[in-house]
Structure formats: structure tokens, C-alpha cells
Amino acid sequence: MLKFIARRILILLFVFFVLTIILFWMHIRLTEFDAERLVRDYLYFTGSIVRGNFGISTGSKLPVIYELKMYLPSTLELIFFSFVLSFAVGTVTGIAAGLNHHSVFLKGVTAVLRLTTSFPVFWLGQMMITIFAVELKLVPTSGNISLFCEVPLVTGSIFIDSLLTMDPENIKSMLNHLVLPVIVLSFMPATQFYLLARRASFTISEMDFIRMAISRGQSQFFLARKHIFLNIIPSILPKIKIILCNLFSATILVEVVFEWPGTGIWISTAVEHSDNAVLETAIFVLAIIFLLTNTLIDIMGEVFFPEKRRINLNI
């Protein structure tokens, strides 16, 4: 197991190295190119990035790292909440659907779900805003908190910051603004989790040990909780990486639709105004976050579900 972890970390370092080369190449394309001092420039560039000195944003004239601390946690909290919600709803319904696989009703539900998730998430967000915010006036249309609420910037994440102020008005407004973007974001990953869990739990429910447990008279709920849920996870783990990736792409789009102040808007304006420092920083930080998450998921999969204890499903 230690060998596996060491190997993964080695791969991580290698990819990190490739990442710095790509970033440096981008930097050269956007600024000047000096052939003699190439290696020195590269080392200086990499060194400053690793130390956190990202430069000054040409749009707001602030150091990029301040803007990063403002915008990144907002995006991360959206991703976190929608991941948790979609995982919980998706896996539970998926396991139940897999156990009742021969029901015609569920086959129809699955077909309908596949259809509705083909619609792009930004269009769905607009529809939700029209229905729930404009017509029914249940939730606000945009932003992450009401303009009347004063929330000091502590961590950058509006959820934590408004909880820290302990003001019920702030918290209520924050939750109000959080509901619709999170729900819109969760549709796609929830469906993906549902399909994966359904397929995995159906395959597992035909296996010998489940048949033995049934012959001992266990109820389906007990089976699902104790036997099926944990056995599904080793097969789902590799797909979680892809789901997280798509979730992030969707988050950027949803931030634009809901005018949520996060990395989406930050990067879009940076591209429009050719703000190079912001662009490089954003790409670097996000790529690092994703690489670390992928490696972490791989390592966790190996630690908690070693080879002799997992069921290898062919999904």
C-alpha cells in the first residue's frame, strides 16, 4: 500500500512539472519571449508561483492573491454543497432502483431522467430563475446574498462568513440565495450517481453473498444499508473524478447565470480583458486543486478498499 501511495505521489509531481511547463509556455506566448534567458525565466516564474506571488491583476490593480481569496471559496462552497446533495440523493435512489430493477415504472423514470439531463445546465438555470424567482417569487434571482446584508470578508465563502456573523437575517438571506444554484447544479451529478449506483447495485444483488443473506431472511433495506452500499463504492470512485470535473465546468456556467461572485465571472472577465496574471493564476490553482483531489481519491480508494477486499465490477 505504501508503494502505491509513493507511486501516486511521484506521478503527481511529474504532472505538476508538466503543468509548470505548460503555464510557462502560456506566459511566454502572452508576454515577451527572450531566447537567451529562457531557463532563468522559467525558474524565476516557477519559483514565484510556488511561493504564492502571482502578480498584479491589470483589471483591479490588486494583487491576484487577494482576488483569489475572494473568489475561489465561493466556487468551492457551491461545488461542495451540490456534490454532497447529489451524492446523497443519487446513490440512495440508485441503490433502491437497482434492487427493484424489473419494475417498469423505474425504467420509465430512468429514460425520462436521461432526457432531462441532456438539456444544458445554463438553460436549465435560466428556466428555474424564470419559474421560481420571477413568476413565483420564492427565491431571489441572482447574487449570493442580499445587497442589504453586511457580511465582512473573512474566509471568502459566503456560507461560513454569514454563519460567523451570527445574524439571522444574514443567514436567512444567504440560504435563500444558495438554494436555487445548488439545486440546479445537482441535477446532472445526481443523475450520474443514480445511473452508476443502479447499475452497480443490480450487479451486486445477483451475487452469491447477497443471495445467501436473502436466504437468511434479511429485509431489502438492511441489505442495502449494510451490504450493498459499501460494496458499490470501489466501482464508483474512479467515476467520481470525472463527475467532479463536469461539476466544476457546470459551476462556472451556473455562476454566470446566477451572477454568483466566483471564479466563473472572474475568469470570464479576465479573458475578455486579457488579464494575464489572473488567467495564469486561476489555471494554476484550479489545476492543482483537481490534481490533488484526483490523487486523494485514488489513495483513499486504495486505503479503504484494498484489492482483496473489493468487488471489481465491470462498469
Partner: peptide, 25 residues
């Protein structure tokens, strides 16, 4: 293994990010 893992960085990054990189260059 080396060839595959050097493409891993594209795999890890969301597609939007890659589009940002290409479109800004």
C-alpha cells in the same frame, strides 16, 4: 505509462479551463 500520465493533466482539468487556456493564447 509516462505518455498516458502526461495526458492526465488534461484529464484532470475541466474542459472549460482548457478552453480558457487555448482561447486566451
Amino acid at each position: 505509462s509516462l505518455v498516458r500520465h502526461s495526458f492526465d493533466i488534461i484529464f484532470a482539468a475541466p474542459s472549460i479551463l482548457i478552453v480558457f487556456v487555448v482561447v486566451s493564447i
